[in-house]
Nucleic acid binder design. Sequence first.
DNA 1: ATCGAAGGATTGTTGAACAATCTGTAAATT
DNA 2: AATTTACAGATTGTTCAACAATCCTTCGAT
Lengths: 242, 242
Amino acid sequence: MASSEPIVPSSRVAANHAATRTAAGRLRVAVPSVADRVADELRLQLAEGALLPGTRLTESTIAEDLGVSRNTVREAFVELASERLVVRHPNRGVFVASLEAGDIHDVYTVRRAIEVSAMRAGGSPENVAAVRAAVEEGKRAAAAGDDEALGTANQHFHGAIVAMAGSPRLNSIMGQVLAEMRLFFHKATVDAQFYHHYLKDNETICLALESGELDRAADLLQAYLDRSEDNLSEVHGEAGTD
Amino acid sequence: MASSEPIVPSSRVAANHAATRTAAGRLRVAVPSVADRVADELRLQLAEGALLPGTRLTESTIAEDLGVSRNTVREAFVELASERLVVRHPNRGVFVASLEAGDIHDVYTVRRAIEVSAMRAGGSPENVAAVRAAVEEGKRAAAAGDDEALGTANQHFHGAIVAMAGSPRLNSIMGQVLAEMRLFFHKATVDAQFYHHYLKDNETICLALESGELDRAADLLQAYLDRSEDNLSEVHGEAGTD
DNA sequence: ATCGAAGGATTGTTGAACAATCTGTAAATT
DNA sequence: AATTTACAGATTGTTCAACAATCCTTCGAT
């Protein structure tokens, strides 16, 4: 189930390469710890759908698979739990998180707050260009019939919107929220129609943004998110087979 | 510096008493793990100002002080780092986080997004009553000349605003942000005037909320946060003695 | 069928060990 | 004198092994 490589590579996922500054002022690139690489590897497998919601993650198994100690796996679990990607049940183990109906609403509440706020504040020309780029990326993916890429492009679109605020904390929150949603998509196997439906909306919102009509763009975005939540809630009703 | 009690009590801070459900459906109250209690204890000391920003937290020292093993302290550190209350410098140690000028702006960006959004959506009568209660709590504290309580009341006020959204995730984000700000206040020793100045604003905002003028209340809140950020940035300029 | 008592498995936590890395100091060099 | 180098001490990063506590399952008794 997990990779059989003895040691986890350190560059597959965009890691938090925190650059520190030593006492003398020399710049020092922080090498990711083993625990971080384990967390990265698990995050990757979660994003790819290799580990589906509800799956149990046994410490010893993962430790062996990745060739690290149990304690190290444990540290990674604490981190992933704080990102809500896994849930820790005391004395029972950790499980891949699974979004319930209430969670979907909650996630969208966060997205509405963050995305709409970022949109209302607008961003630099470069930021706006990044939003446009994500829209075009989506069009290309749709033309090529690549549904996987279409979903990715959509996430880029919303990520670019939040990035306009230029806030590391908002970016990180948004990243976590999108990671949570990815988890859900793999469980529910949302069909491609889901994304195609929103291609035009993205274009419209982007146009409003580019013409400086921030309030209108924000309202459109809000409506978009409301509709998106409704759609996903329906999907959830069908998917909840447990 | 740290408590000399051999074991950390488990009830001093509002812990995440995650209630699990066993296979048979029986409800099970999760007893906080030692690592969680260590994290709670450190959170408490950080909130109380017993550990000032920049302070180094040595693993072995804390392990001895609290009578737990280094590995357990380590787990607590991972958690606190994910909340940005401490910063981990690889191979150098963990330090109590310290808000720089950019961080203050960033924190307020998050607050604007979350609080204003919650205010625009409004809340149930109970939620509004909680906001009112926080306002009155602040008045009482001011009348009693208790500056500490005044600051707490102010945080309750903003916490209650976010709570209107009824979103666990937003509440948790807001909790973290407020914890970060508490850290800053202890370093900068903001004077009492800072809070007194905002007593009237809280009242005004609360009135607008109670009369159902959500958009106006949201605008007032936004202006409030802008001003608050400016004030704090000034304070930061004076406080940054390093 | 319900209940309770083993048994096995997994987690929670500890303690010790060791390599890697950092910090500060003292010696050596220019 | 200033800079570099070398070294020793301390702390972190990680592993390993052990054991108690807890959970889940199975088996047996009622």
